[in-house]
Structures are given as structure tokens and as C-alpha cells.
Amino acid sequence: MERASKPKQIRLSTKPTREDLAALKIGDIVYLDGLIYTGREGVYMRVLEGKEPLPLSLPEESAANFHCSPAATVDQDGNITMGAVTATASFRFSKWIGDWLRISGAMLIIGKGGMTSHDYKEHFVPNGAIYLTTVGYGTGALLGRGIKRARDIYWRKELGLAQAMWLIGAENMGPFIVESDLEGNSLFERENAKVSANLERVYAGTKPAVLKRFGETDDRSDELIS
């Protein structure tokens, strides 16, 4: 049968130039080279709410923030063993992302599931950042291969292994998909719109539940029976 056309594949530095990012289109496939750091709610709360200083200089060392916690262990001598790495869902970090982009100078936010085009236009575009999504999302073993070295781990005691800030050296690490571009367009939203157009047909012959759930809308006066 006819094979689907292959998306375009690009290698990108974790300290990209604006021109590098401008050349990317949503749906392109990217492989990363350079240093990447992990950071999620634990790190955001410490830095943005607790006003702790950053433990490394950003974006000089890296402009790539990965929403991830690796499957990894640290032995008594501080040696790090990295297994697989997989992103965590980014929509939960919406309330911190604007401040974080300003403070960290991050140009690449890497995670699972993307954020809204509202977040992109409001926070990403003014800071010249784009969003890369991991693939699958279970391609942890492939991504693990792209990590040449776990360089450092910050706030391990304070935040635990999963929430700590890991600094990792990437080489040809990927695949990632360009989810948002410098104009704030979202690949997921484009695809969702196409899928939604089909739903009417799929739902034909089904019927809504006889008992509704309270709280599904903001109208507190809703009757639940129909």
C-alpha cells in the first residue's frame, strides 16, 4: 500500500539562533545536540515562588528545558546511571511558563502534549521560544540513547530524584516534533480541528447518558436528568 510521506528531519543545537527556529515548521522532526536541563513543578516553585537563585547560568549553559524526570539512580559516590527518559505532560505548568521563559531565557521547551496556542502567543512568542514534543510518547529508550552523559543533578535532596534538576548532555537526541513555531501556531490544535470534523459521523447512533454529571459545566442550576 501507499506509504505516508516522511516528515522533514533536522538537527538542532540546544542553544539555537533565532534563524534556526524561524526555519522550523510545525510537524518537522528535530534531533538535539548540546546540554539540556530538566525542570518541572518542583524547580518552578523553588525559583519562581521561593525566589531561589538558579543553580547554573541560564541560558548560557543551555536554552532547552525538558519537562521530564528520568529513570535514573545516583550511587553513594554520586555516579549517575541513566536509563530511559520520557517527558511529562506540560499543560500543568502553564501558570509558571511565562515567568520561567523570562528568567531562564529558554528557547526550547520540550515535553509531552504541548500547551495551548494561547500560551504560545502570550508567553512563547514574546520570548522567542518554541515547543518540541516527544514522540509516542513512550520512546524513552531511544531518547535515553541520545544522552551521552548525565552531567549534574541539582536539588536532589530538596526535590527528590523525579523533581530534581538534571543537566544532561545530548547528542543527536530525538526524535522530537515541532509543536509550536515562532508565530505561536500549534500542531496539536491543527490536528484536533481535523479530527473533530469527523466526530459527528462516528457518534451517530450513540446517545447521551440518561443521568448527567454535576460539575461538567459551570451552570450550577443544571438538571441532571434528561
Binding site: P70, A84, A87, G140, A141
Partner: peptide, 10 residues
């Protein structure tokens, strides 16, 4: 091949 977890979220 690498004897590595298939997904980072195990």
C-alpha cells in the same frame, strides 16, 4: 538491545 526501560515513565 540496551537493556533499558522502554519508557522513561516506568
Amino acid at each position: 538491545q540496551d537493556r533499558r526501560a522502554m519508557c522513561g515513565d516506568t
